[in-house]
Design a binder for these strands. Structure first.
Lengths: 94, 94
DNA sequence: TGCTCTTATCAGTCCGTGCTGATATCAGCG
DNA sequence: CGCTGATATCAGCACGGACTGATAAGAGCA
């Protein structure tokens, strides 16, 4: 799930979709990447539940799902919180 | 930066460090990975500013930096927020 | 100082995965 | 229908990066 955000192009797609739903042709134009490449990444993101496809006639609009992103953000925030509370709990070596 | 959290072993290390600073031998034992592998990942995490090394005699304790993790969490949360506010701003295709 | 233990570094291999080119599918429109 | 344009799928290639084995560096202890 977090792995999906690791690839630069995929992160770029997500940032673009954060400005509102967009169709594949927009993403292709804005990123400069080839269309099959974008399509592949969108399939991966769809499979991870980060985006949904909304077909409108010939075009397919993709929408970023805020809940999924927020879930990841929450998990990381919780990790940070745990690290803060356990800052002094050093496990001693034998 | 986010890329550092993509690798499963590195994420595991970070989770372990969230329970408090630990030395390399602990991480080796808990993850079951070989020591050079752990050391390499720790160097990467150190380079990304996610952890710091605290040498204590022969041992080296590693500490997770909560601020770094929280920064990433904040960026993701902001992305989710933007997606929410721009949910209806669909860019029409020509 | 010599020995042991912990950690760091390096060279090499191997595998996952992102990119590309070709092609298929599908919707609208003449 | 046949054509055009948008998107999806697939096979092959290539490259980055994770893992391993050997080895070095450094600190404590006899």
């Amino acid at each position: 799930m977090i792995r999906m955000l690791a690839d630069p192009l995929r992160l770029r797609i997500i940032e673009l979709l954060a400005d509102g739903p967009a169709c594949v042709c927009h993403l292709v134009e804005d990123t400069g990447a080839k269309q099959p490449n974008i399509s592949n990444h969108l399939r991966a993101l769809r499979g991870a539940g980060l985006v949904v496809a909304e077909p409108h006639g010939r075009f397919t609009y993709y929408r970023l799902l805020p809940d999924a992103v927020e879930t990841v953000a929450g998990q990381l925030a919780e990790l940070a919180q745990r690290a803060r509370t356990n800052a002094d709990a050093r496990r001693e070596c034998p």
